[in-house]
Simulated scan of single mutants.
Amino acid sequence: MKNVKDFKIAERIEREGKGCLIVVNKWDTIPNKNQETATYYEQDVREKLRILNWAPIVYSTAIAGHNVEKIIVAASVVEKERSRRLTTSILNQVIQESLAFKAPPRTRGGKRGRVYYCTQAAIRPPTFVFFVNDAKLFPETYRRFMEKQLRSDAGFSGTPIRLLWRSRRKMEKNDGGVNAMKAQLNLTPSDRQVAAAT
């Protein structure tokens, strides 16, 4: 029952774009602790809370005050990561390296998605807008790959990140282009997820 509740809380954290730190308490009750033990418990936590694979884990014993300072330090890092902005030049360098490593897949008709550029549109959570030829040419697997690359190259530990995909044709139809996109970013979190899927 506890795992179901934990997972529902994890889903809500991700959905609402909140920062998160996973604290494993009562660490003093684990016998013969070593790196292997910590790895085993981390894998167990990661498996149960897969949706929060970006959240750092801290082991502590709250009643004895062990590693409480590590919790505070880690929470401070999470807060900084949530508010961090990447310059467009650094962001596009990361994106170009990711595209060179793994190009978007071709459709059966031979079409392939192209990324023109990317910009960070918001913080808390960090939100990135990809301007592309056709958002439909980027399947969910490729979008997850790009999120993984962004995290491995640029960080953002402890915070969900949002990737929004904007088709050039859609932007050209909208009067104002970038201004229309900025207005759309003021949607509620659930609306943002719907927009991200288009």
Rank of each mutant, 00 (worst) to 15 (best):
A74R: 05
R12D: 15
N174W: 11
A196C: 06
R12I: 13
N133D: 03
I123D: 10
F7A: 13
G177Q: 06
D134E: 01
P125T: 06
K136C: 08
L21N: 05
A121V: 15
S152E: 14
G109D: 01
I51F: 00
R114Q: 08
W54S: 04
T61E: 11
R144E: 13
G158F: 00
P56E: 07
A135D: 11
L49Q: 10
V23N: 00
V24L: 13
Y116P: 04
Q184H: 00
G109K: 14
I71N: 04
R82S: 13
R168G: 08
N67R: 13
A55I: 10
M181W: 04
T198W: 13
D28P: 10
G109R: 09
P126I: 04
K80R: 12
F131E: 02
A74W: 01
V94L: 13
S76K: 11
L49C: 06
I57P: 02
V94H: 06
K5W: 12
P189R: 06
L21R: 09
R84E: 05
R151M: 01
A121D: 12
L52V: 13
V94W: 00
R168H: 04
V45Y: 03
A62N: 03
A38K: 11
S60G: 09
Y117G: 07
A38N: 06
K26A: 04
D191M: 12
L164Q: 08
L164E: 10
A121F: 14
R166S: 14
G176L: 06
L21K: 11
S83T: 14
N67L: 01
F7L: 15
I72V: 14
I51H: 03
P56S: 03
F130D: 05
A75I: 02
L21C: 12
